[in-house]
Simulated scan of single mutants.
Amino acid sequence: MKNMEARNHCTMTEFFLAGLSEKTELQMPLFFLFIGIYVVTVASNLGMITLILLSSHLHNPMYYFLSSLSFIDFCQSTVVIPKMLVGFVSGKNLISYPACMSQLYFLIIFGVAECYTLAAMAYDRYVAICKPLFYSVTMSYQIYSSLIAGVYIFSVLSASVHTGFMIRIQFCKLDVINHYFCDLLPLLKLAHSNTHINELLILIFGSLNICLPILTIISSYTSIIASILHIRSTEGRTKAFSTCSSHISAVAIFFGSAAFMYLQPSSVNSMDQGKVSSVFYTTVVPMLNPLIYSMRNKDVSAALKKILHASRSHL
């Protein structure tokens, strides 16, 4: 009977989220900072998706991947930031067990999806620059739609495995998650049962979901750079590099912060430092991606100017 009561108690768990800072004087400045970030993120990502849908000359695989990336960034920031904003205002940053598991599930989906979408975009640039004559065949509707679908299917699989094994862990008291959202590593520190399988899964999936996309990106850009160096005209080389520069910037920021968080020894200090890197890949990167692509991509800039000009004409 006592064992049954203990198990029932373990299933009725709530958590405190430690948040970014415990200093009360920082709560409102952080609230206004992140609400500003969220407004820019939502507007820029939904704006990018709308721009691609409305501009017929952007209807090609490169921009379909970009619209998928914008959707992922919008969803990822929405999973994290609104709950964080409530915590800044309320002071008591409680999250229920079901809400915590749901947040973890969707964060993994969109985090993994971003990794493989960036890899797919690198492969798309490789085909466009290194094999331009075969681009329409290699990146046909069936192939790029299958790549996008495969990204989401594998992301859901990864999230289901991680969350499924996390649900099996017992959390037997109201405890503090040393983070501003429900993440794998901070949750495992509060476990009251064996976590060896979970740690092994983090190592396997973390290595796979970071290393495989990075290897794809590196191999794609090695071939791209070699191909660009063979272009004789300076203008041709500059144009080829400009189509890749925005993607390289997005890759460097996202994978740098994600690797810092998940591919290092776990300790109290590294967990506190991990909050800073988490801010980059959960809030800053989703805001920066559409801005990077719109400012450094002539096609996107031209499409935006065309739509703004058309809207002014109607007014």
Rank of each mutant, 00 (worst) to 15 (best):
Phe260Gln: 15
Ala128Arg: 14
Met121Asp: 08
Met28Trp: 01
Cys244Leu: 00
Val284Leu: 03
Ile214Met: 14
Lys306Thr: 06
His9Cys: 10
Lys92Trp: 05
Gly36Thr: 03
Leu157Met: 08
Ala99Gln: 05
Phe74Ser: 05
Ala240Phe: 06
Met84Phe: 09
Asn289His: 10
Thr195Arg: 01
Pro98Arg: 04
Met101Gly: 03
His9Arg: 15
Val251Asn: 02
Leu157Val: 14
His247Tyr: 08
Tyr144Thr: 09
Leu66Gln: 08
Leu66Phe: 05
Phe181Asn: 14
Leu157Asn: 07
Val40Leu: 03
Glu235Asp: 13
Thr282Arg: 02
Thr216Pro: 03
Arg237Glu: 03
Ala226Phe: 02
Leu308Trp: 02
Pro132Ala: 12
Pro61Lys: 01
Lys131Ala: 03
Tyr141Pro: 11
Ile225Cys: 04
Ile292Glu: 03
Ile143Ala: 08
Lys131Phe: 06
Ser223Gly: 04
Val127Tyr: 03
Phe134Trp: 13
Ser68Gln: 09
Ile210Pro: 10
Ser245Phe: 08
Ser227Ile: 00
Cys211Ile: 13
His162Gly: 11
Phe74Trp: 06
Gly91Arg: 02
Ala310Ser: 11
Thr238Leu: 11
Leu203Trp: 13
Leu315Met: 00
Phe16His: 11
Leu304Pro: 03
Tyr135Met: 06
His9Phe: 08
Glu5Lys: 13
Phe241Lys: 12
Tyr116His: 15
Ser223Lys: 08
Phe32Trp: 13
Ile49Ala: 06
Asn289Phe: 08
Thr50Asp: 04
Met84Ala: 08
Thr117Lys: 05
Ser245Ala: 10
Glu235Met: 11
Leu107Ile: 14
Pro286Gly: 04
Ala120Thr: 03
Pro213Asn: 09
Ser160Tyr: 01
Ile217His: 00
Asn93Pro: 04
Cys115Leu: 06
Leu85Phe: 04
Gly19Lys: 06
Val285Ile: 00
Tyr293Phe: 15
Pro213Arg: 05
Arg296Thr: 12
Asn45Ser: 01
Asn60Pro: 07
Ala191Met: 03
Lys173Ala: 06
Asn297Thr: 14
Leu118Met: 01
Glu5Ser: 07
Ile228Tyr: 06
Cys211Glu: 11
Asn194Val: 05
Ile129Leu: 09
Tyr281Cys: 00
Leu17His: 14
Tyr116Pro: 07
Ser249Lys: 13
Met271Pro: 10
Arg7Thr: 12
Ile109Phe: 04
Ser96Ile: 04
Glu14Asp: 13
Phe154Gln: 08
Lys131Ser: 07
Ser223Thr: 11
Thr41Trp: 02
His162Phe: 12
Asp183Trp: 10
Gln142Lys: 15
Asp183Arg: 11
Glu5Asn: 10
Lys189Leu: 09
Gly111Tyr: 03
Phe16Thr: 10
Val300Arg: 06
Met101Arg: 06
Pro286Met: 07
Gly91Ala: 03
Pro290Cys: 06
